[in-house]
Design a protein around this nucleic acid. Structure first.
Length: 269
DNA sequence: TTCCAGGTCCGGC
DNA sequence: GCCGGACCTGGA
């Protein structure tokens, strides 16, 4: 659920804490290189980013309340939810509305190319995601040139707000879910779905439950097929939080993945 | 060419 | 509160 990683054979290259990080894993080991900072310095940052410390088995036992979710867990066992940079995550998901993954990736990369700082050198150089201050300084039209369309004013306004410290994104990590959700949805272009993405993928709120079209289908087809009444997205989120519990966000990602990859009619295994 | 894609906002019941 | 339409853009 992040948009700047590139695959190169066994290796994946991304930008983490202003470093170009190349990473790969085999059965039991994760290997990485970083530029410009030394691996010793980056290691703890990367460990946090990858959420290595999260106890998956405990989460599986907590959310594994029915055959459907248990089946999804069996297929994607080991899949973790990243702890991304909240600012980059916020802008990325503002870009995601009524869009698609290739375009969102292109938008985010264009924003970095236009307004970020160079890192690395030689054959491999990339750009950082621009800070709130850097993005607050550019005009809405220039942001629109990145292909984001009608989302440009949302991004410009959000950049100014965050640059002014309203909200202070890092502080939201320490704040309860409901309060952080309220703060985020005050921002222009940030509704219930985008806010829940930011909460889940960057603010360490594992009960967050973003309801997009895929989750909407999955829940409707697999869990509420006998319910005729129309459920709003927000009510679906509340239902899921109640049903799956405090790690509902993990259930969300396993179901999301399953519904996208396997479709509606897959059988339980 | 027309349609649609990982929503949000706005105006009218 | 719920419902429908508009909104940039690019690929099918």
């Amino acid at each position: 659920q992040t948009f700047r990683w590139k695959r190169d054979g066994d290796w994946f290259e991304g930008i983490v804490f202003n470093n170009i990080v190349r990473i790969r894993q085999d059965e039991s080991t994760i290997e990485f290189t970083s530029t410009p900072d030394d691996e010793v310095l980056v290691r703890p940052l990367l460990t946090d980013y990858l959420a290595i410390g999260v106890d998956l088995e405990q989460i599986y036992s907590s959310i594994g309340v029915d055959d459907r979710i248990i089946s999804a867990i069996s297929r994607y066992r080991g899949m973790r939810i990243l702890r991304q940079d909240p600012w980059e995550c916020l802008v990325s998901f503002i870009c995601s509305s009524a869009s698609n993954i290739p375009r969102i990736s292109s938008n985010v990369e264009s924003i970095c190319t236009a307004f970020g700082q160079e890192i690395g050198f030689g054959d491999s150089f990339r750009k950082t995601f621009p800070t709130p201050q850097e993005l607050a300084g550019v005009d809405e039209y220039a942001i629109r040139q990145c292909g984001v369309g009608y989302r440009a004013p949302f991004i410009a306004d959000t950049a100014r707000a965050v640059a002014d410290g309203v909200p202070d994104l890092m502080t939201l990590r320490e704040v309860p879910y409901e309060e952080a959700l309220r703060e985020l949805t005050l921002l222009d272009g940030v509704g219930d779905k985008v806010a829940n993405c930011v909460l889940l993928f960057s603010l360490n709120k594992l009960e967050a439950f973003p309801v997009d079209v895929w989750i909407d289908r999955a829940i409707r087809e697999w869990y509420l097929s006998d319910v005729k009444e129309r459920l709003t997205r927000k009510n679906m989120r509340l239902w899921a939080r109640d049903y799956f519990g405090s790690y509902a966000g993990y259930a969300n990602q396993y179901l999301f993945h399953d519904r996208r990859l396997l479709g509606r009619g897959q059988k339980l295994t």
